[in-house]
Design a protein around this nucleic acid. Structure first.
Length: 442
RNA sequence: GUGGCCAUAGCUCAAUUGGUUAGAGCACCGGGUUGUGAUCCCGGGGGUUGCGGGUUCGAGUCCCGUUGGUCACCCCA
């Protein structure tokens, strides 16, 4: 299409009309509330970074999945940020000595990945990142997960709707080593676990057998779940655990389970051996949040990354955190009918008008509309008026209702107006115009 | 990067299977009405049928390409 320019939006991006913008705000405000509720402070960085910031952590292969560019007369190569963690590590490393321990930061903003879009994945999306740095304890792990659960709960989701699936890299590796699986073969096993959902059970069983597990033990990995209770002296697993002894693993994660119980979120959690995440940099606990039936992609994912700050030039610093994108979250909310519908949405997004001012159409009354609108706005009331030509009171009230205004003010004369509550239908007798503001809450 | 499906008004869909000037509902605007949220009636604006090419007397309809959407694979920080 050489000649006429295309005005379609770029692949994998979205246009935000008022309704979509309100949905976005519904989500980002929930993110912000949950973050602040748990004592995290907002930070941010540039939306593009030097390309090397990403290749340091992820290698050259990542370049294919980035939007990168150079300036004409090229200096350096930049990339639109695909994730926040490298920026976060830089922020922390730069001021590490003066930052409190722990440092609790969150951010929310746009990120970019040059992939083919599909359900739950776009090229431009919003992501919420919550990180706790400088604390290596299981309590820190639990605090991060509790913050994530707080968000989910705040949006109306329940432990029946979504599950937090937790694994522990280090514990799993040590357990596997104890069982006699050499370190160098473990990545292949993790990869297999990660792919479990995409292959027939028989094939999975066959492949798992290659790692020295009996066929019936494959079933445990197939199922993946380990129940951990803190009521008993020794954690016990689900019945399947008798087939594969995960006692060592369970002991390793018991401190975390206790902290999760103390934080009141243990009932949202499953310990799941098949949660792998990227192999690159997680060093301990890893987790993902999934819709309970397995529909949709992961809603959130994260874990402990104790080596990363050092990798970006800071002091050795334990860290734990997660990211949550808006795309899958919105899909799950819509699946569960938890995303407010159109008129309600404006209210949720804080855009509901307080007052709609109209007149009865006489010149004296009409002349008072704009001054009154200005007066009410000066009192911090969200005030609207019509742009239509009709002065039919019925039609204008209809417009006020459609906008979900709380009050309609009808200017009756050059000096008086009536105030009608659109919620109760009650209407005052004519009052002096200067009295209107206090009648509508100004 | 690979593959399947899809594309008609802002939205949801029609168009007698290749045949006149592409229609309807919703939405939007105006009127019915110097005055109260409903219902109803009348009228209006809106389309290069995603875009480009081809076949044909004739293409929204058939063919090729392309762009975009969607779903899956790869990947998933």
């Amino acid at each position: 299409m050489p000649e006429t320019p295309s005005f379609q939006s770029p692949t994998g991006t979205r246009d935000f009309y008022p309704v979509e913008a309100a949905r976005r705000r519904f989500i980002t405000e929930a993110w912000r509330r949950a973050s602040i509720l748990h004592g995290f402070e907002e930070v941010d960085g540039p939306i593009f970074e030097h390309l090397e910031l990403y290749t340091v952590k992820s290698g050259e292969e990542i370049v294919a999945d980035l939007f990168s560019f150079t300036r004409k007369g090229a200096e350096k190569t930049y990339a639109l940020r695909p994730e926040f963690t490298p920026t976060l590590a830089r922020l922390y490393a730069t001021k590490a000595n003066s930052l409190p321990k722990p440092t609790k930061w969150f951010t929310a903003g746009p990120f970019f990945r040059a992939e083919r879009p599909q359900r739950g994945r776009l090229r431009e999306f919003l992501q919420w990142n919550v990180d706790l740095l400088g604390d290596a304890s299981p309590a820190a792990d639990a605090e991060i997960i509790a913050t994530c659960v707080s968000l989910l709960r705040g949006l109306g989701l329940t432990a029946q709707d979504v599950r937090v699936k937790i694994n522990h890299r280090k514990a799993l590796a040590e357990w596997l080593t104890q069982r006699g699986l050499p370190i160098d073969r473990q990545p292949a096993l993790l990869k297999l676990l990660d792919n479990k959902g995409k292959m027939p059970p028989a094939e999975f069983a066959k492949e798992i057998a290659a790692f020295g597990f009996a066929p019936e033990q494959a079933e445990v990995f197939q199922k993946g779940l380990i129940r951990v209770t803190i009521d008993e002296r020794t954690p016990t697993g689900a019945p399947a655990d008798t087939v594969v002894d995960v006692t060592y693993f369970s002991e390793a994660i018991t401190p975390l389970a206790r902290e999760l119980a103390a934080a009141g979120v243990l009932d949202w959690v499953d310990f799941d051996l098949s949660i792998v995440r990227g192999l690159a940099y997680y060093t301990g606990m890893v987790f993902e949040v999934h819709e309970a039936s397995g529909a949709e992609r992961a809603i959130a994912g994260g874990g402990r990354y104790d080596n990363l700050v050092e990798l970006f030039g800071g002091p050795p610093t334990p860290a734990v955190g997660f990211g949550m994108g808006d795309v899958v979250l919105a899909l799950v909310l819509q699946d569960r009918k938890l995303m407010p519908e159109d008129p309600k949405l404006m209210e949720v997004a804080g855009q509901r008008p307080d007052v709609f001012v109209l007149s009865n159409g006489t010149p004296e009354a009409e002349a008072q509309v704009k001054p009154l609108v200005g007066l009410l706005r000066a009192r911090n009331l969200h005030t609207r008026h019509t742009y239509r030509q009709t002065r039919n009171v019925g039609k204008l009230l209809e417009e006020a209702v459609k906008l979900r205004a709380r009050f309609a003010v009808i200017v009756e004369t050059g000096t008086t107006a009536t105030v009608k509550s659109l919620e109760t239908g009650q209407q005052t007798p004519p009052v002096p115009i200067p009295d209107v503001a206090k009648l509508v809450g100004g």
